[in-house]
C-alpha cells in the first residue's frame, strides 16, 4: 500500500481527491437541500463549451473552463428564473447547447484533441501539479464564500421568498451560490469528469443527511465521506486497472445503498442514529 504513495502521480491523485471532496462535500449540501441537482448538472455539462473553447484557442482547457462555467451558471440562473418557459426546459436547452458548442469547437481544432476523454470521464491519475494548485486556490475561494455568506445561504435555501421579503438581494445570492457550484464543478472535473460530477456533488451530501439535521455537521460529514470514498476508489482503480472516476462513483453508490439499507434495518429494530 505504502509504495503507492511514493509515485508522484499518486500523491497528486490523492491531493486532488481530497481537495475535490472538500469542495463537493460543502457545496453538495446546498445542492441537495435546495434541490438544485438538475441545474447543477446543467452548469457542469454546459461548461463543456469552455473546454472546447480552450482547445480551439490552443490554451490550457482549464482556462476556458473556468470563465465558461461561471458564465453558464449566471445564464442558467437568470434564464431559469426570468424566462417564460418552464425552468427545467430552460436548463435542458442550455445543458445541450454548451455540450454541442464544445463538440463543434473540438472538431474545428486542427489535429487530435488529446486528453478530451479526461474532461468527460475524469482521470485522476494524470492530474498535473499545476491543476492541484488551481484546485487549492478554488477550494479556498469556496470555503471563504461559504464562511462569509453562511447565514444568508441558509436563509435562501430554506425560504427564498421570505429572504426577499426581509430585504435581502435573494436573486443575487442565488446567482452567487450557482457561481460557487460552478467553481466546485471545475475543481471536480479532473477527478470524475463532467459526466459524473453530479454523483460526487449529490451522493456524499445525501448520505450525510441520513445522520444529522445540522447543516454544518452535514458539510463536515459529506466531505469526510467523499474523501474516504475517493481515496479508496483511487486505490481500487489502481489495483484493478479500472477508470478512476467511474470506480469512485460506483463505490459511492454502493456505500449509499448499504448505509440506506442498513439504517432502515436497524431503525426497524429500534436503534436510532444522529448526532
Amino acid at each position: 500500500m505504502l509504495e503507492l504513495l511514493q509515485h508522484s502521480f499518486m500523491q497528486n491523485a490523492f491531493a486532488a481527491a481530497i481537495l475535490a471532496s472538500i469542495a463537493c462535500g460543502i457545496i453538495g449540501v446546498y445542492v441537495v437541500v435546495k434541490k438544485i441537482v438538475f441545474i447543477s448538472g446543467g452548469i457542469a455539462h454546459a461548461s463543456f463549451g469552455g473546454i472546447g473553447l480552450g482547445y480551439y484557442l490552443g490554451i490550457n482547457p482549464m482556462y476556458g473552463l473556468l470563465p465558461f462555467s461561471l458564465l453558464s451558471a449566471l445564464a442558467l440562473g437568470t434564464v431559469s428564473k426570468k424566462s417564460k418557459i418552464p425552468e427545467d426546459s430552460a436548463i435542458g436547452i442550455l445543458w445541450s447547447f454548451g455540450m454541442a458548442l464544445g463538440i463543434i469547437l473540438v472538431r474545428l481544432t486542427p489535429g487530435y484533441a488529446p486528453n478530451l476523454m479526461t474532461y468527460l470521464f475524469g482521470n485522476i491519475l494524470t492530474v498535473p501539479r499545476f491543476d492541484i494548485y488551481m484546485m487549492l486556490g478554488l477550494d479556498l475561494i469556496i470555503l471563504g464564500t461559504v464562511y462569509l455568506f453562511y447565514k444568508e445561504f441558509l436563509a435562501l435555501c430554506f425560504d427564498e421568498e421570505f429572504t426577499t421579503v426581509q430585504g435581502l438581494p435573494s436573486q443575487k445570492l442565488y446567482l452567487l451560490l450557482l457561481c460557487i457550484i460552478a467553481l466546485t464543478i471545475v475543481v471536480m472535473i479532473k477527478v470524475v469528469g463532467i459526466i459524473l460530477v453530479i454523483a460526487l456533488l449529490t451522493i456524499p451530501a445525501a448520505l450525510s443527511r441520513k445522520f444529522t439535521y445540522n447543516l454544518k455537521k452535514m458539510m463536515f460529514l459529506s466531505s469526510l465521506f467523499g474523501g474516504l470514498v475517493s481515496v479508496s476508489g483511487i486505490v481500487f482503480s489502481y489495483l484493478f486497472d479500472l477508470p478512476s472516476g467511474a470506480t469512485i462513483i460506483l463505490v459511492l453508490c454502493l456505500l449509499y445503498g448499504l448505509v440506506g439499507f442498513g439504517k432502515e434495518l436497524l431503525e426497524r429494530k429500534g436503534v436510532s442514529f444522529g448526532f
Binding site: 437541500v33 447565514k151 444568508e152 441558509l154 436563509a155 435555501c157 430554506f158 425560504d159 421570505f162 429572504t163 426581509q166 430585504g167 435581502l168 443527511r209 444529522t212 439535521y213 445540522n214 447543516l215 452535514m218
Partner: peptide, 15 residues
C-alpha cells in the same frame, strides 16, 4: 430541511 427551530427564527433577524 436540516434546520432547527432556533435557526429558522433567527432568519427573521437577518436584515
Amino acid at each position: 430541511f436540516p434546520i432547527s427551530v432556533w435557526e429558522v427564527v433567527l432568519t427573521g433577524r437577518i436584515s
